[in-house]
């Protein structure tokens, strides 16, 4: 297992407010890692640093050995915490966009997955329910053959059935040596699919463990461990 993502003493501030404070961790390839923490703890900031929406001037992040930039963006597939496309676009437009811009995008695969969920490619994004929109976005993101998938809150505001579907899409489409970094509040619903969990509190990394180890050592679930850390 090689190190896919490395953060070394990563910090970030918005104005005077410290959003990330000296965060260091490593992520191996082939792992699904959960990123947990209350609202405003720095999860989205960390993710934005990794995908390059916030500048990493100190080059504290290395992905596959490279600092964040053109090269890493080509191997990172990112799903923002909100639906990113305006409603006037059809699903086919998004397929065209991904196909043109990403060499590793498998259009046939995406179309199959969409058809499998009964999502019409002629449909406008704006006319979809939130759950369908989220499913579409995850299918697009997971239909790339990337090395690292960064999913920010893929389950926010969708019902339990849709959530289950999204988890299935993730597991089905993830290439074998690829990793997923998953930020979510749904700790109970996702802990079965995780290899590792990272807890962030006030911009600091306070917990980074193998989920199975937590269960083995303390006989407790991850959500119990979470409650203990944040209560």
């Amino acid at each position: 297992m090689s190190v896919l993502l490395e953060c070394k003493n990563l910090s970030h501030r918005y104005g005077k407010k410290v959003a990330l404070d000296d965060v260091s961790f490593q992520m191996e390839s082939g792992k699904i890692v959960g990123l947990f923490g209350p609202n405003g703890s720095g999860k989205t900031t960390l993710i934005k640093k990794i995908v390059g929406l916030l500048q990493d001037e100190e080059q504290a992040i290395k992905i596959d050995g490279d600092p964040v930039g053109e090269k890493t963006k080509a191997i990172v597939s990112y799903s923002p915490d909100r639906l990113a496309f305006d409603g006037e676009r059809k699903v086919t437009d998004l397929l065209d966009f991904y196909e043109l811009m990403y060499d590793d995008f498998d259009r046939g695969h995406a179309e199959e997955a969409l058809a499998g969920l009964g999502i019409d490619t002629g449909e406008y994004i704006g006319k979809m329910s939130k759950g369908t929109g989220e499913k579409t976005q995850i299918i697009l993101v997971m239909s790339r053959n990337a090395k690292l998938y960064v999913l920010d809150e893929p389950f926010s505001g969708i019902d339990p059935v849709a959530r289950e579907t999204v988890i299935k899409i993730m597991l089905q489409n993830m290439p074998e040596d690829a990793s997923i970094l998953l930020s979510t509040h749904h700790i109970q619903e996702t802990e079965q699919i995780l290899d590792e969990a990272i807890f962030i509190k006030d911009g600091k990394l306070v917990f980074h463990k193998s989920v199975e180890k937590v269960r083995e050592e303390s006989g407790r679930s991850l959500s119990e461990a979470y409650m203990e850390v944040f209560r």
Partner: peptide, 14 residues
């Protein structure tokens, strides 16, 4: 393994 993992909704590595 992948199919089983998806069916069970667990991590493929596990």
């Amino acid at each position: 393994v992948r199919e089983l993992a998806v069916e069970a909704a667990v991590n493929p590595n596990t």
